[in-house]
């Protein structure tokens, strides 16, 4: 099982405790550079960037840029990378990172072919590495480290774990939680693709044993069966921290892709009804609106 906090924070005896290095793949591109700056501003320790052909440059006058991942990893010993390359180059970028020793790869690009994701995942499995995404906003420990594209203001340090397929709903619901006094211990964007490097059940495994965890919020959407699998896993594991879910797409027509490549109902597979009924079985209330999430969570905590 992945020790996500070990990767993101490290141990108190580490020289880089709570200051883990992150490499940005595609740092000189428009999107990569914008978010590299934002991550640095949030306090993330961006130690290197990679853009083939731009090696030797300095990003923002201080972050060294390398031609290859191998050079960047050799120079920094970083174990985390975030990928901003165009979707069609994702597989190559992921292979470069995993073959260079990266253990946590955050895949931002949307529109990665599913086959490429599956190939990257096979390699990650061999290398004992974790992929978050693709098509994810990333993950963060609020007020400590952000590896992603989320805006900072919705998030506050605290004791609720938030797992979400959607980016903007993650912001919206975290904002509502923060306003209601529920800070977040970690937020993980699963991504909106049909195949996710880290599924909801995997993300649940990463957060369920956080010592001072006070609650879990699951933000799902139509398509696939990862919400159903998670509900079953929660039932089987006997996890009993207050948990609330939200499912987007109840009103979506069948057999239409709703923005996300993975948000499609085929027959009854992937329907909101199926997910809601499984959460109900797991005794997890499902909010009708994002704003209802903190209300239901507070209700669960009183019990």
């Amino acid at each position: 099982m992945t020790d996500i906090f070990g990767l993101l924070k490290g141990k108190p005896e580490d020289s880089d405790y709570e200051n883990k290095g992150v490499i940005v793949q595609g740092i000189t591109g428009a999107y990569g550079s914008l978010h590299a700056k934002q991550m640095i501003a949030y306090g993330t320790n961006v130690v290197a960037g990679v853009t083939p052909g731009k090696g030797g440059q300095k990003f923002e006058e201080k972050v060294p840029v390398y031609n290859t991942m191998q050079e960047a990893v050799d120079a920094t010993n970083a174990k985390i990378s975030i990928v901003f390359v165009p979707a069609k180059f994702f597989l190559q970028a992921a292979k470069d990172a995993l073959n260079s020793g990266i253990k946590l790869l955050v895949a931002i690009p949307e529109h990665v072919p599913v086959r490429d994701t599956m190939e990257a995942l096979e390699l990650a499995k061999q290398k004992d590495a974790v992929i978050i995404g693709p098509n994810t906003p990333g993950l963060m420990i609020p007020e400590l480290i952000k590896i992603g594209i989320m805006p900072p203001m919705p998030f506050k340090a605290g004791k609720i774990a938030v797992l979400s397929k959607s980016g903007t709903l993650l912001y919206e619901i975290s904002d509502a939680l923060t306003n209601a006094g529920f800070g977040q211990s970690i937020t993980i964007g699963i991504g909106g693709d049909p195949v996710n490097g880290t599924r909801l059940i995997d993300a649940f495994d990463m957060v369920k044993d956080i010592p001072d965890l006070e609650g879990l919020v699951i933000v799902g959407e139509i398509g696939g069966d990862s919400e159903e699998m998670l509900a079953q896993k929660i039932i089987d594991s006997g996890f009993n921290k207050p948990s609330v879910a939200y499912i987007a797409g109840r009103a979506a027509p069948k057999e239409k892709r709703m923005g996300h490549a993975g948000a499609i109902v085929m027959g009854t597979y992937g329907s909101a009804e199926s997910k809601v009924s499984m959460f109900n079985k797991a005794n997890i209330p499902v909010a009708k609106r994002p704003a209802e999430v903190p209300v239901l969570l507070a209700g669960k905590m009183e019990k």
């Binding site: 993650l170 919206e172 797409g249 009103a251 979506a252 996300h260 948000a263």
Partner: peptide, 23 residues
């Protein structure tokens, strides 16, 4: 902005008797 947020808006609109023309 964002597929999840727009889906969520569609759901709330439908809950309140509105009929979406597009996503």
């Amino acid at each position: 902005n964002g597929a999840g947020l727009v889906m969520s808006t569609l759901d709330m609109l439908s809950d309140n008797g509105g009929k979406p023309a597009c996503f």
